[in-house]
């Protein structure tokens, strides 16, 4: 039996890796991958905690809904990034700055 703390540790590491990717990557798709990491860290947490919530199964259910929503969100974001590429010929968020103060 793997203790709960192991799951929480892995998920915290996964979340931090995702955040690091979001903050440092210079490619919108890599940023999206980072966001996926963060969402999956949360899903891991839900499933691990859900083991102690057998009566209602809330954690498992939440994890399922999240997986579906994450896929929907990524689909929309990819379509938007494709449009950005058509206009700018780059998907580096740092170089796309026609809107600024």
């Amino acid at each position: 039996m793997i203790p709960l703390s192991h799951f929480m540790f892995i998920s915290a590491v996964l979340f931090c890796l995702g955040l690091y990717a979001v903050l440092t990557k210079r490619n919108a798709i890599q940023v999206l991958i980072g966001i996926e990491f963060m969402i999956n860290a949360a899903i891991l947490n839900f499933v691990a905690f859900g083991r102690f919530d057998k009566a209602t199964g809330g954690g498992q259910m939440f994890a399922l809904f999240t997986i579906v929503l994450a896929a929907a969100g990524v689909a929309v974001a990819l379509a938007i990034i494709l449009n950005v590429y058509k206009h700018f010929r780059t998907i580096n968020p740092a170089k796309i700055d026609s809107l600024k103060d």
Binding site: L32, I35, M38, I39, A77, I80, N83, V84, P93, S98
Partner: peptide, 18 residues
């Protein structure tokens, strides 16, 4: 400008919801 606004919104929003 429109596509850039959408990208900024989507990426920032996705990070906040994560």
């Amino acid at each position: 400008k429109q596509s850039e606004a959408a990208m900024k919104y989507a990426l920032f929003g996705a990070v906040c919801s994560a």
